[in-house]
Nucleic acid binder design. Structure first.
Lengths: 159, 159
DNA sequence: CTCAGAAACAGAATTAAATGCTGCATGACA
DNA sequence: TGTCATGCAGCATTTAATTCTGTTTCTGAG
């Protein structure tokens, strides 16, 4: 269910605003306006519009997961017992509720879901994996522990 | 090469600040102070400190990738020809430079790297995959296209 | 047990930003 | 060519960020 607002053509300034806010979500409107060569008032109008139209979904602080004791990341491939919508739906409901699940995608290929989890240590990993595996409909799973994180850049390619 | 500042014990209020800023990165300091039951000035002090100590790495707007024409996500498993540091290092250097690479992890298990890419369409996917495959040292790859995105929540479990 | 020093806080004052309003310029269209 | 709609800058007002000051609290030494 994506937002119902029809997509419109964003002009150069809108894209510049998104690009700046993506990299510095807490910039003041005054400075944002300078960056995109506008005065503050139309700049703020544009930001509000981009927010209300759903181009901007929200703002987040990026936290240092290592310093906060969440250094262990694992990718888990999940296969379900059957490919019926009932089974998929049940799996979705359960997986969404697990806070340590950072990401979950249904994929095409050798398995059904790729789930990424972030935890403090192996004990927690076992705990979370337990929850996942106990989800009704789950058949097999295979974990790939992250040894070294090379890159993460959630930023979209705007310009 | 993580930050050199030693980790300190964050108290309840620091954690509450992180929790709020993670969910609403653009909240005003005045309202943040209310949320964590402080007056604005010590609240601001704490935020600045959390930033300078590296607990907060930055702030980002979360953009709607579908509305911005970047709806195609793929996970690619990569195996390198050899497991020498020289090969790894070359791969890292190349992969980091590709803007459509959202995430790249070295993993333990059946392959070497799990790379997530986000693009507009299949043509772009081919293009990006081409760049990855042409990286010196890459042996084999296998793509899992995302059919349905179930969850993404980069938020850490703070409280 | 008491006192000095440090850390953290609230509140007030000042500076800066967000917000709302007005009027002008530009372009689409009848 | 006149009218309407859109988007902009600039100004005024409200609100927030930032700085400063003095007080409280905690800690450790004597």
């Amino acid at each position: 269910m994506t937002t119902s607002i029809r997509t419109r053509v964003l002009d150069r300034i809108d894209l510049a605003i998104l690009d700046v806010l993506q990299r510095n979500g807490r910039i003041s409107n005054v400075n944002l306006a300078k960056e995109v060569n506008l005065s503050p008032s139309p700049c703020l109008d544009r930001v509000k519009k981009l927010e209300s139209e759903g181009y901007i979904e929200g703002y987040s602080a990026r936290l240092n997961s290592a310093k906060l004791g969440q250094a262990l990341v694992a990718h888990v491939e999940i296969t379900l017992k059957s490919s019926t919508e009932a089974v998929f739906s049940l799996f979705r409901e359960h997986i969404v509720k697990i806070p340590q699940v950072v990401s979950c995608d249904m994929v095409a290929g050798g398995f059904d879901y790729l789930v990424t989890i972030r935890v403090a240590d192996m004990a927690q990993y076992r705990e979370v994996l337990g929850k996942i595996v106990e989800t009704p409909g789950v058949s097999t799973n295979h974990t790939y522990m992250v040894i070294e994180h090379i890159k993460s850049d959630s930023g979209l390619t705007i310009l």
